[in-house]
């Protein structure tokens, strides 16, 4: 057992599946010899060969479309989009083909494929490298959208994503690629998809987030504890389909909810969670649902990105406001 970062956990999970399942094949831009621009696939081509860890030509639609063709043949392709901001040419293949294939063939052809993409802001990246567009994918029936928040979840959820019989969009919060290390046992044990993780149990307010924002959300919960506010913290992890049972159970207990997301506020995963809570647990609410999010603006270039992104202070302000509501 070793303490590893989130990106090392991604690498370890990919290596584990390459080792144990001959149908797994990795490809994308720069994933081979270079090991990926973030080093997520570092050393894998050397170990598993150029036939299974493949440098592809530079064309995102092709990368996704190849995965569709290979998955239909029973392989388990894991394709990398170098950045989420470059995924849009591939959306045609992901939405129009991968998400629909099982349905439109009545289950005859299935898509056991994973599309990986680093996403989110906070690393002073150039334009198009910092957006959080998970809601676009969460909206599409037939896809699963998974976002790990820490190294152990990255390892367990990546294993589950590769083994899942349906297409999974696996979004890696690159700001926290190397922010913390976890002891992760490389034992091939997967974590469940479509399941929230409760990071902290509490009785006063439920803080709900996913991905990189779990870092700020957990810090906020500690600070709230110092103020005597006992927050429950939920990592949604699979943002589509969402494990609403865990969230609703928590809301029924605390009666107060604050949703934290890096993405723009409207039409977002947080909006869906708020709507589900309103539909199923509105009578348990002691205060209006609060949301802390990115703004409904274009993600700014990096000079302003800190002001765009939710901070611990913004979460604290919102949580206190929710607590004060009577």
């Amino acid at each position: 057992m070793a303490a590893i970062t989130l990106i090392e956990a991604v690498n370890a999970a990919l290596a584990y599946e390459l080792e144990h399942d001959q149908d797994v094949v990795l490809f994308g831009e720069d994933v081979g010899k270079n090991g990926g621009v973030f080093r997520a696939t570092d050393g894998l081509q050397k170990k598993y060969g150029e036939d299974r860890v493949i440098d592809s030509p530079l064309a995102e639609s092709m990368i996704a479309g190849l995965a569709v063709g290979m998955a239909a043949q029973g392989l388990k392709p894991v394709a990398e989009m170098q950045f989420m901001g470059f995924i849009f040419p591939a959306v045609d293949q992901i939405f129009g083909q991968a998400a629909r294939m099982r349905h439109r063939t009545r289950g005859r052809l299935t898509m056991p494929m994973v599309i990986r993409a680093p996403f989110g802001g906070g690393i002073h990246a150039p334009e198009h490298h910092s957006e959080s567009t998970e809601a676009l994918f969460a909206h599409i029936p037939g896809l699963k959208v998974v976002i790990p928040s820490n190294p152990s979840r990255a390892y367990g959820l990546m294993l589950a994503a590769i083994r899942d019989p349906d297409p999974v969009i696996f979004l890696e919060p690159k700001r926290v690629y190397r922010i913390v290390k976890h002891e992760v046992e490389d034992n091939g044990e997967e974590y469940p998809l479509e399941a929230c993780f409760v990071d902290r149990e509490g009785s006063d307010i439920t803080l709900i987030s996913w991905g990189a924002m779990m870092h700020e959300t957990n810090i906020a919960a500690e600070k709230l504890a110092a103020e005597g506010i006992d927050a429950e913290v939920i990592d949604v992890a699979t943002v589509s389909p969402i494990d609403m049972d865990t969230i609703l159970e928590s809301v029924r207990k605390t009666g107060r909810v604050c949703i934290v997301q890096e993405a723009p506020k409207s039409g977002a995963v947080g909006s869906e969670i708020a709507a589900e809570i309103a539909e199923h647990a509105i009578m348990s609410l002691l205060a209006p649902i609060g949301r802390v999010s990115g703004y409904d603006t274009v993600m700014p270039y990096y000079k302003l990105e800190k002001q765009y992104m939710p901070t611990v202070d913004r979460i604290l302000d919102e949580a206190r406001k929710i607590m004060e509501y009577k």
Binding site: S61, M62, G65, L66, A67, V68, G69, M70, A71, A72, Q73, P77, Q93, Q97
Partner: peptide, 8 residues
């Protein structure tokens, strides 16, 4: 592209 993926 699917044809290429199948052939791959």
């Amino acid at each position: 592209i699917h044809c290429a993926g199948v052939a791959k």
